[in-house]
């Protein structure tokens, strides 16, 4: 392997450390913007823009750490950090500087890391037991009750099972939509996809790109577990699902993970469908990218304000239809384009 020259090395360093720092500071604004838009739809003044993101994270960092009730506390507590690391990697692999290194600047790496993040929820759910469900001191299995020796699941366990199902059904639209630009450009390298859309020749302005963007949007909502696809952590029956027992700094890391997922998923969208890459050395492109990153959260906020939680009765057909639409668009693009 030939040693890269100083300029390339500097570029890689800036991409590896500067971009994630920028991503983290920008992403903690996104939950606040989402909440504010939802509040305005609900005809009220919501919390301040910095509150659900920055100040909530800081507040949790300053709380005292309680004893987490879990069979494997260390794994449970550090799972969100694994998710944060996965998103860190997604963001740096999107930069053009990482294009040639070990083949990591490609779609395969991005998809794999997103899968890791989805899997974090499943792991967390099996490892926690909050006071709110099984451990509440109540004589449930007293004489005279129905089924006194039933096997009991905590709310988090059930959230995990649902997250498994979400991975099976509702992550497909996201991945199928991500392959439409690949079909267009005939390459899985991100730099190639970006270069093929140079000069505002964006994929989203073409029909297959627009369809792919719609399917990606559905997949984005499912990835974030926002309404209407929030069955995995349904507030109506599971309170919060796998994240119930997280407290203090570990909850802060979960909030950070969620904000970063929001940013990373939007960043992938902007890179693939608009061709604006996350290039630390090109100021114009960076600013365009950061502005376009706001599109998906804003539309997501409006959709989530107007929808209830959909159960698997509705989620499975919806995801299947979205996947099929994406798949046919992919096939047609491969055939025609």
């Amino acid at each position: 392997m030939d040693i890269p020259d100083a300029e390339t090395l500097a570029g890689i360093l800036v991409a590896s450390f500067g971009i994630p720092m920028l991503a983290m500071s920008y992403s903690i604004l996104l939950p606040g913007i989402v909440r504010k838009i939802q509040a305005r739809v609900q005809q009220r003044i919501g919390p301040g823009i910095l509150t659900p993101g920055l100040f909530a994270i800081l507040k949790f960092v300053f709380k005292h750490k309680p004893v987490i009730s879990s069979p494997m506390p260390t794994l449970y507590k550090w799972s969100p950090a694994v998710g944060v690391a996965a998103m860190y990697c997604v963001v740096i692999f999107l930069t053009p500087q990482w294009a040639g290194i070990l083949g990591l600047g490609s779609m395969v790496a991005i998809i794999g890391l997103l899968k890791v993040e989805e899997f974090v929820y499943v792991v967390m759910g099996y490892l926690s037991s909050n006071i709110l469900s099984v451990r509440l001191p109540y004589p449930d299995t007293a004489k005279g009750s129905k089924w006194p020796d039933a096997r009991r699941s905590t709310l988090e366990n059930w959230g995990s099972v649902r997250m498994w199902k979400m991975i099976v059904f509702s992550s497909l639209p996201l991945y199928v939509a991500m392959f439409i630009p690949v079909a267009f450009t005939r390459s899985i390298s991100i730099v190639d996809i970006v270069n093929s859309q140079a000069g505002w020749n964006c994929l989203i302005f073409r029909v297959p790109g627009a369809i792919g963007a719609g399917v990606y949007f559905l997949g984005y909502i499912a990835l974030l577990n926002d309404y209407p696809f929030s069955i995995g952590k349904a507030k109506a029956d599971l309170v919060e699902g796998p994240m119930l027992e997280l407290a203090s700094s570990w909850r802060a890391s979960y909030y950070l993970m969620r904000a970063l997922v929001m940013f990373a998923a939007s960043s992938i969208f902007v890179t693939l469908f608009f061709g604006a890459s996350l290039d630390p050395l090109d100021g114009y492109r960076l600013i365009v990218h950061l502005l376009l990153v706001l599109i998906l959260p804003i539309f997501g906020a409006i959709l989530s304000a107007f929808s209830p939680i959909l159960t698997f009765r509705q989620v499975v057909p919806l995801s299947t239809i979205a996947t099929l639409i994406g798949f046919f668009t992919f096939v047609i693009t491969v055939g025609v384009g």
Binding site: L132, S133, D140, S145, A150, R152, L155
Partner: peptide, 26 residues
């Protein structure tokens, strides 16, 4: 006992309940 897989107790304090009661869903 083989009629159902698991039991989910939804306890006193829950986002769907405005009053304390205990439901067990099998």
């Amino acid at each position: 006992e083989r009629m159902f897989e698991t039991e989910i107790p939804i306890g006193f304090f829950h986002s769907a309940l405005l009053e304390p009661y205990r439901t067990r869903y099998f």
